[in-house]
Amino acid sequence: MSQAIPLNSLAKQEKIVHDRPPMLAIGVMIWLGSELMFFSGLFAALFTIRAHLASWPPKGTHLDVLQSGIFTIILIASSFTMQWAVWLVEHRRRREARNWIIITMIMGALFVGNQAYEWTHLTTRWYTNSYGSVFFITTGIHGLHVFLGLVAMAFLLFRMRGREGDPGELSTFQGVSYYWHFVDVVWIGLYSSLFLLK
């Protein structure tokens, strides 16, 4: 035990580097592949319905492009704060990383909050027209993913309790970050096709 103390303090300055990809990270990547195909099914439905409509979005649809755009930027920014947290964990600055995770969670929660606001205030409902159906199913499934991302981050904080890290901590962090980036990229696609595409 007497030798463990100087070794430990030396290790604090070093960056954690895996010499091979963690199995968890590979698993997350492959699972994200299945998520990708799931969302592509929704996108395929979206583009098929769009091709059959005279105008997109249909007349009478009142979307707040600017408000959603602001929350889109918040969600994209949360990807950067997440990555910053991963960088901090790699450099063994766990306390700061925990704070940045909380910041990321707040940004994600703001996005979900806006989503809930949109859902309750949009005049187009899921039964109004096919655009409404597509809008609610895609934003709903995506919102569920953002929410589950927040749950995953809460579990990450739960896992990070205590002063010392454990060997599996970084790969768990990376796994959650891959998922979060994926959810962000999907939203960029959804926002462009639902709000911006004319």
Binding site: D19, R20, P21, A25, I26, M29, I30, L32, G33, L36, M37, F39, S40, G41, F43, A44, A45, F47, T48, R50, A51
Partner: peptide
């Protein structure tokens, strides 16, 4: 459009883990 979107996603499905493995193959 449906098939095109799915095939595009199929391409990404290969690129997603492929680029990750490539990234690792260069640093390990």
């Amino acid at each position: 459009n449906a098939g095109g979107v799915m095939m595009f996603a199929g391409m990404l499905l290969c690129f997603l883990p492929g680029s990750y493995y490539y990234f690792w193959s260069r640093r390990m």
